[in-house]
Design a protein around this nucleic acid. Structure first.
Lengths: 336, 336
DNA sequence: TTGATGTACGCAACCGATTACTGCAAATGG
DNA sequence: CCATTTGCAGTAATCGGTTGCGTACATCAA
């Protein structure tokens, strides 16, 4: 009773195991009545085919691996929802892994996935500019990868990104339009590609308005909130910017905390705009101006592309960048 | 080259497959040198034992299923982090499933898990007061379940909860202390146990201070933000409470939006306190008073209990309620 | 020298499903 | 009426590891 399997069923019903298997897999080679009898009996005995056995045979796990730097983050949480939505429709499940932005964790998980634990991978990378060859192993095993938001340029794969350069340019220009002369750029890891692209938008907007780019105004932060508080406090006290363009939501929050403590008035003394997927940005004090990425849509797009690859509908999947547009919401924090 | 497996390795190294298997599983029956030679060769050829084959044999998937109503939610996202932290240490991975508070989805996923896809389950239930016997099937298969936050009373299992009654009592009393006479209780699903417990705290606090409980002040909301906006607006306009105790974070946000639009001043006209895991609650306008559950710790505690059950360290695992305490943060929204 | 103990490894059955191949009866066609 | 196709089901090999059992050889004590 404990270990019910296809053989037990077969004996019980006086039918071969192959017929039972066919009942579960929509095979045309089975009589309708037989099939119903089997399924009814199976339901009654709470039986479903063991997935490990099935997967061992046909090498399909019906599972997607999702790799993200963080989970407790509005952007990624919404993106995961988007992925899940599509996966669910396809009858797939999600294996979730968080890298904490640590390259080694990413590598170890990818290596683990080499064994067919998942049929495909959707990831937002930790971003370190290391050797990315470990990802190439996946190709050998025919496990497709789709990147979203944070991608590796040197790996050929479908990529879902936003118009970061443009948004950054526009956001910076917006700050300039409101009168800012000394705009700081907040970033967590200057060296990763997404930080670079956003910074370029910032730099080019400055250039357009003949504001010299000063290296000192690029504030490179960490993943530790306490350390960031110190960095931001020092920057606001010593460099005294009149505008902040934050490439990361958390750093905008850090800025708010520091301003509260230092008595800096946003937006009077300092205008702030930030990349953020926080849906209660209007409720902040003051309401935060945001560049909001279509997180949910990015997730569902990434999943859709992955399924196209898995199902190989077309001849070839477009292993290119798919750009979804962010929206800029001007609110009080930048004088809106 | 494509399909490397234990047999190919065996032939290549002129060693039996059993020895190779032993090299990977910390068996004592293997020579150190042999083991190293095998592991080195395997590494070189990018080989790891196939999980589906292993699992098929020993019925262990090294995977935990995590079932939550929502993902893009501060509480659950943090709890998932807590679960992940422990799981990672044990070398386990996480299969994530979102129920959207829909009972049927919960049931279908649980049924799917019946087949050894996961070794154990951590869940926060959708909460509908239906027949929960589908969970009993898991016992037959020896798949342990740990509940957290939202539990089914009628299922025997380890449960990680917070002191909701007490917190609710204290929060309500706090509102009374600040002078509120007409406190509304916001809830999403009045009938589920967690909503009940919190309401009881609210009711008893009123009673203690001789404030009559009025049914009209229990505002039953939905999962749809737009509908909630309407419900809350109507409530604030018609019933005109002077205090809000929200059992769900989202509803506090909804209240803020409605107050913004109606020109109701928080905390002057209306004092608000809410269950919430939002870590930027101090940055809201005004700073939101919160009852904050130890989300991360609840997750890690739940995972720890599950592993105790899986490893059967003790004779018997405590299938009882484990209560972690929430913290109340009084901020400006309730006159703090 | 002999029997006991331990180490390291191989053999082969096994986990539970899938499916190519085969077989048989009934249906269909000319 | 015979040949061919079709529908349905069974046999057995297979997916890729794991492990109980058996054994060869080394070591050691008496």
């Amino acid at each position: 009773m404990d270990n019910i399997n296809i053989k037990v069923l077969a004996k019980e019903l006086n039918i071969s195991t192959s017929t039972i298997s066919r009942a579960f897999n929509g095979s045309p080679d089975i009589n309708k009545d037989t099939k119903e009898k089997i399924l009814a009996f199976a339901r009654e005995h709470n039986f479903l085919p063991n997935h490990y056995a099935s997967n061992l045979r046909d090498k399909k796990s019906r599972t997607l691996a999702v790799i993200v730097p963080e989970i407790a983050n509005d952007f990624f949480a919404q993106a995961i929802n988007g992925i899940e939505e599509i996966a669910r429709k396809k009858g797939f499940y999600i294996l979730l892994y968080r890298t904490d932005d640590v390259f080694d964790k990413e590598v170890s998980f990818i290596n683990y996935l080499n064994n067919g634990k998942a049929d495909g991978i959707i990831m937002s990378v930790s971003g370190e500019a290391n050797d990315h060859n470990y990802l190439r192993k996946l190709e050998q095993k025919n496990i497709p990868v789709v990147f979203f938001d944070r991608v590796y340029e040197d790996i050929e794969a479908a990529k879902v990104i936003t118009n970061d350069y443009e948004s950054s340019f526009d956001a910076t220009e917006h700050l300039i339009d409101t009168g800012c002369k000394k705009i700081a750029y907040l970033v967590v890891n200057k060296s990763i590609s997404i930080g670079q692209v956003r910074m370029q938008g910032y730099i080019d907007a400055l250039k357009k308005h003949d504001i010299p780019f000063v290296d000192e105004l690029v504030i490179d932060c960490s993943n530790d909130e306490k350390i960031n508080y110190g960095i931001l406090k020092k920057a606001l006290e010593e460099i005294k910017p009149d505008g902040i363009f934050s490439s990361v939501e958390r750093l905008a929050f850090g800025t708010y905390y520091v301003c509260n403590d230092l008595g800096i008035d946003i937006p009077r003394d300092l205008k702030v705009i930030s990349f953020s997927s926080l849906n209660i940005a209007p409720l902040l004090c003051p309401a935060l101006s945001t560049i909001t990425q279509p997180a949910f849509e990015m997730g569902s797009k990434a999943a859709t592309l992955l399924f196209e690859e898995l199902e190989k509908k077309g001849v070839n999947i477009q292993k290119k960048e798919h750009v979804l547009k962010s929206k800029i919401f001007i609110r009080k924090s930048s004088g809106g």
